[in-house]
């Protein structure tokens, strides 16, 4: 199957000043990523690891410093951002932003937020067609039309999240990028939105890239997970495999860190300290070295490359063990 999306050696560097000299912040560094049609890929990592930057690069909201993005058979990384914003591919890749309270125009009604978006991305529709599409999107996200006449401040957090999703799916995208869509919501509302996303995916056949720092949410909704650390993908595996046999020490620390009532009273080995600086990192040193419990001399002498450690699993660690073959009963 040809992938829907293929990113190769994607890189985003930001120039920063360090005293008098110029330096570069490696937000996303040499990332390869593929996404099959209809697949849901999770991107996890700590804040500042570059997962949102990667999502924005793929959404073409920011320009990469280097690397290519092939979407649906076309190379889109070369296109200038302004040209892309008016190209038909713009409607194909849509983003649902993190905070539903901040990402909706407060001066527009929910209906106008969605229909304006349709009008600007799909030219040539009659007003009736635009309204019909917007209404269909509201129906799909389960928002009654009576609420569509309201302004964002008159809606609850969950309803605003639905408006954000309705806006993105109204233009019938092939790829939906969800940047922490539920992190600002209460658990019960989060449950509603996650289930809605599951239903929408089945109904409309959209591929998702789901950015989150919450592994439990990722576990429920994603088929495959890419773990990021300081601008690099350190492990990528199918969800069940990743949780059952994490190969990279950072993935293991992430899994051990999420709260679990079943681990009451147990002492768990924790990651100490914080990540090293992403500014001009040493290209020959593993980014996780120093914080990693396995740090050895070779970790500071050579950067481990992402390599296959199992059927679909790859990890960037000198000590990643090949996981036992998946035996499903």
């Amino acid at each position: 199957m040809t992938p829907l999306l293929q990113a190769t050696a994607l890189r985003k560097l930001y120039p920063v000043k360090q005293g008098w000299s110029r330096a570069q912040l490696h937000a996303v560094d040499d990332v390869d990523l593929t996404l099959a049609p209809g697949e849901c890929l999770g991107l996890v990592g700590e804040s500042g690891c570059g997962k949102s930057t990667l999502a924005r690069l793929i959404a073409r909201l920011i320009a990469p410093s280097d690397g290519g993005i092939r979407f649906d058979g076309q190379e889109i990384a070369e296109t200038d951002l302004r040209t892309f914003a008016r190209s038909p591919e713009r409607a194909q890749i849509q983003v649902v932003f993190q905070d539903p309270h901040e990402s909706l125009n407060p001066g527009f009604t929910a209906m106008r937020i969605v229909s304006d978006h349709i009008r600007s991305l799909i030219p040539g529709l009659t007003p009736i067609q635009v309204t019909a599409r917007a209404e269909a999107a509201f129906e799909d996200v389960g928002l009654p039309l009576s609420l569509a006449r309201r302004y964002p401040h008159q809606l609850s957090g969950g309803q605003k999240a639905r408006v954000g999703i309705a806006r993105a799916i109204a233009v019938e995208p092939k790829l939906l990028i969800l940047d922490e869509p539920t992190s600002a919501l209460d658990v019960s509302v989060q449950a509603v939105i996650l289930k809605l996303l599951g239903v929408l995916r089945a109904k409309r056949g959209i591929s998702y890239i789901f950015v989150s720092h919450d592994l439990e949410v990722i576990r429920l909704i994603c088929d495959r997970v890419a773990v990021m650390y300081l601008g690099k993908i350190v492990e990528c595996a199918p969800t069940a495999q990743l949780f059952a046999h994490p190969a990279h020490p950072y993935t293991r620390a992430l899994i051990a860190g999420s709260p679990d009532p079943a681990r009451r009273g147990l002492k768990t080995e924790r990651l100490q300290g914080s990540a090293t600086s992403p500014i001009n990192p040493d290209p020959n040193r593993c980014r996780f070295a120093g914080r990693c419990p396995l740090t050895a001399p070779e970790c500071t002498a050579q950067m481990p490359q992402l390599r296959a450690v199992g059927p679909d699993q790859s990890a960037a660690c000198h000590f990643a063990q090949s996981a036992p073959a998946k035996t499903e009963s």
């Binding site: 019960s188 439990e216 909704i221 999420s258």
Partner: peptide, 22 residues
């Protein structure tokens, strides 16, 4: 209901159950 809505408590997306009403 609060427990059932917690992602950590659910094995699959189907098990996740929202709390009705507000």
């Amino acid at each position: 209901r609060l427990f059932a809505a917690t992602p950590a408590a659910s094995a699959e997306l189907e098990d996740l159950a929202a709390i009705p009403g507000s």
